[in-house]
Design a protein around this nucleic acid. Structure first.
Lengths: 306, 306
DNA sequence: CGTCTGCATACCCACAGAGCATGGGACGGG
DNA sequence: CCCGTCCCATGCTCTGTGGGTATGCAGACG
């Protein structure tokens, strides 16, 4: 059950004769004749009825013909994609990104640019799955923790992180909060392996502060649900999709910022295309939010009351 | 770009190592290694990055992997259908039939029996295309003209033919019409190659009658449209889907009846299944309409005012 | 009844793919 | 620091499959 045999089979069916088919596929008639009989032997019944003027497919032959045609066209497509890969052409890029990157950068970038070539298939991954996204099929990853794997890494933006509080919270009237204030509150924080938590922990440690009461959440949705039920006052997260009031978290030098890296495989077959895309993304962040700075609460998608 | 090479390729990708993959596909490691490098050479770039502990697919490798997996599952399906063909299993039968057979026999048979195995894919063909339906893919044909091709033929029913008249026609109050009456009317008849026309012509000739005024129509829809616009009084047809009043056409011996034959390819791979189905269809006609007789205007689906 | 057409068979050759043996690079433990 | 281990790559040989040429053979047609 070789592709070759099937190709010959459909050629014979379409030509209606072994001889004509042989001429069409540029092969001698006996070879084709043998392949055909071999196929019939494999299947176990006649695929053609032999007439003095040629061959006509039997019912079984017609049924197999349908299947074979479908398989062959599919095989040709695979061949084409392989060729496209070899010549560096690319029609689709799989992009995996954290929530904040998608909401604050990718989505507005795509909406302002419209459809792009190559087509960007964006998937948002949970922070714990992001480091392995490259090896699981993503062509480009945007993450806060630079992957250690054999990859190109570029810093494309630095976005502030936010403390989200319910509308009834005493802080609800202010737009930012300092770290000494923050650590006194009941906090819902990402779990330790997440970049935002590491960033926050480092800043807290730098200032010699200590958390008072912390509840860890691996998923932002859970944090939001807990906050809504009063189990925590402030949620610190990089996920901009909260229905809570965002406060920018400040430290003395300014806002606490999460770096966002674009990472892609070293030697990727579409390296040039990806490089180009990453550069445009970084430039987009600069144009829109200022140099070396990501979107803030004043302008950009994260500024609305969500 | 062989299926074999692709199979090895996905095996290596799934095993994460040439050695393990070789063991899994029951082949020596060097063969697999060579096939892999050959595939990479064909595509033109590295599909795996070699690590001391095994191989991990590159971006191009992952992309090709998707395509290859799809192709291989499809190939396996084709293999399975081929096997099924060989062992005489059948999951689908393509049945081509005239309008009258579908409306009066197939449809009621299927509605009373519910879903059948094998699944019956019913297509209605125009009378001119029916004789070649067997060679164009149908597994079973129900037609009024027994095909001359190398096929089994069985008479399964004999259905009356009808003259359809507008509701305003003088005959509209009667339920049948004799041939001497009929030939006096303005007639819309099927064209000469159609079975109903041949049946009618033969009966007319047997009784020494002659048509007065005939308009030929190859398509029943056209006949109906012409009748509706007053271009003909009576439409003789075996198509039971007219919005006109049906009159049974009588000759001295009784109703003028159109034979319906079931025909299927001699040596069909599902011969037993088809034989069984045909027998059940014939038995269904006998049970429902009496021996050697098809549905009449009194009982059955054709009796309603259509 | 000869010829023509078209499929099947016989025989030979070439190459692809499999196996075996072996080289070589990268970790890891003593 | 070196040796053992693990794993991939390569060289060599052999067999099996597919292709080519020559030919047989059966039905159609004049």
């Amino acid at each position: 059950m070789d592709l070759h045999a099937l190709r010959y089979f459909v050629a014979v069916a379409e030509a209606g004769s072994v001889t004509r088919a042989a001429h069409r596929v540029h092969v001698a008639q006996p070879s084709l004749s043998r392949q055909l009989r071999r196929l019939e032997a494999e299947v176990g019944l006649a695929l053609f009825t032999r007439t003095p003027r040629g061959l006509t497919p039997t019912a079984a032959g017609r049924r197999l013909l349908e299947a074979a045609r479908g398989l062959l066209t599919r095989a040709d497509q695979v061949e084409l994609t392989a060729m496209a890969l070899g010549t560096g052409q690319v029609e689709r890029l799989d992009l995996a990104a954290t929530a904040v990157a998608i909401d604050d950068i990718i989505a507005p970038y795509l909406t302002t640019l419209g459809p792009t070539h190559p087509f960007l298939a964006v998937v948002d991954e949970t922070p714990t799955r992001l480091p392995t996204a490259l090896s699981r099929g993503a062509d480009l990853v945007i993450t806060a923790i630079a992957p250690v794997a054999d990859a190109h890494v570029t810093l494309i933006a630095q976005v502030p992180i936010y403390a989200y509080v319910p509308a009834a919270h005493p802080w609800a009237l202010q737009s930012r909060v300092s770290l000494p204030e923050l650590v006194e509150a009941d906090l819902l924080l990402p779990s330790a392996e997440q970049a935002t938590r590491q960033l926050l922990d480092a800043a807290v440690h730098r200032q010699g502060l200590h958390y008072r009461h912390v509840t860890e959440c691996r998923l932002p949705q859970v944090a939001q649900a807990l906050a809504a039920s009063g189990r925590g006052a402030a949620v610190v997260s990089d996920d901009p999709r909260f229905a809570l009031r965002p406060l920018r978290v400040d430290e003395p030098g300014g806002a606490l910022r999460l770096p966002l890296y674009a990472a892609w495989e070293r030697g990727h077959y579409a390296d040039g295309v990806i490089r180009d895309l990453v550069e445009r993304l970084a430039q987009y962040c600069v144009d829109r939010y200022g140099p070396s700075v990501g979107p803030g609460p004043v302008s950009g998608a994260a500024s609305s009351e969500r």
